[in-house]
Simulated scan of single mutants.
Amino acid sequence: MTEPRLLPELTARVREAAHSRTPPCPCGAAVLADRPDGTVVRHADTVAKAHAPDTDPAELARRLAVAAASPDVLLPPLGPAPAALHGRLVTFWPYGTPVDPDDPDAAPWEAAAVLLARLHRTPAPTGLPPMRGPAKAARAVARLRAAGAHPAAGSVLRAWRTLPAWARAEAPMPDTTTLCHGDLHLGQLVRHPAPDGPWLLIDVDDLGAGVPAWDLARPAAWYACGLLPPGEWTRFLAAYRAAGGPAVPADGDPWPALDVPARALTVQTAARAIAKAVTAGRPLDEVERCVVDACGRMAAGPARSAHRAAK
């Protein structure tokens, strides 16, 4: 639950930040997101984000420094250090035009792939914390366990247990030198300058050193579950390879590299879906059933890859 004073005071902060660079304008502020892990408010050409309450200040500062040093890949922040507001760290960003969710044919799969390849070819700076993808997956499973009984929960938890310890955030990742985004999906791309500048990646909260295949895992899992058409997956993978991305071999079968992260993202998605359905007291929808069913097939044994489990 958002601290009651956070939104109005965050709105005041983003107005102040916006008009430190431009004359005052009469437009209001828009709440772009209001979740426990992040509240985001826009005013004019400026966005303010209140990060999760447990955000580590030093780790966030390191992630902001990476974004500031990589303006051809990551949207750079408007300041070098976060502010504080009601126990939350607040950062300021230029506004970028997001992907249009109502125009799936225009989804920038190639742009996302090229940006990931550039990111993955950038050495992770010394002292950068680990990429937080496995930790987010583990939190989703913990939320599932806390949500209460559901008939599909058992197969999802069994699929989780087939993953290696690093993918469950129970051991260090096998790669500690590659720079990764940690939570790649189409909502993490914006055009900047708005409205039609080049695409850039946003959201540094999970940025860190780790296994680069994790950043390809969500579209890989969607493809394996039948939720992403083969043509779009092929475009994404081909563009990543053409840009020299190191997460998969330059040719041949990509699934030996993608299998564990894709299975982990499938479990994470299914766990979140079930937890939300239990909280709302509703049945799973068709998309949610697809990922839950894939977990059931993966739970048949550790040799069942995410790709084969979808067949």
Rank of each mutant, 00 (worst) to 15 (best):
L60D: 13
P23Y: 07
A112G: 15
H192V: 04
F92S: 07
A117V: 07
S305Y: 10
M131Y: 02
I274H: 08
P23W: 02
P164G: 01
P108I: 09
L64Q: 07
R88C: 06
P261G: 10
D102Q: 15
P174S: 02
E232D: 14
L258P: 02
L184Q: 09
E170I: 08
P261K: 15
L258D: 02
L7Q: 10
A303I: 02
A147M: 03
D56M: 04
P302C: 09
A147S: 09
R168Q: 07
V31R: 05
Q268C: 02
Y223T: 05
L227I: 04
D34Y: 11
E286N: 09
Y223G: 07
P98K: 02
Q188G: 08
R241L: 00
D72H: 14
Y95E: 13
A262L: 06
A58S: 15
A224Y: 04
D285P: 11
P101D: 01
A65K: 03
E170H: 13
L64I: 15
A124Q: 12
Y240C: 01
A152D: 06
R35E: 12
G148S: 10
W160S: 10
A271L: 04
G154T: 14
G79C: 10
T279L: 14
A81H: 15
G79A: 15
P229S: 00
G210P: 06
V41Q: 11
T266R: 08
L237Y: 00
A117I: 02
T2D: 11
C25R: 14
V292R: 08
A238G: 04
Y240V: 05
R63D: 04
A146D: 06
A275C: 02
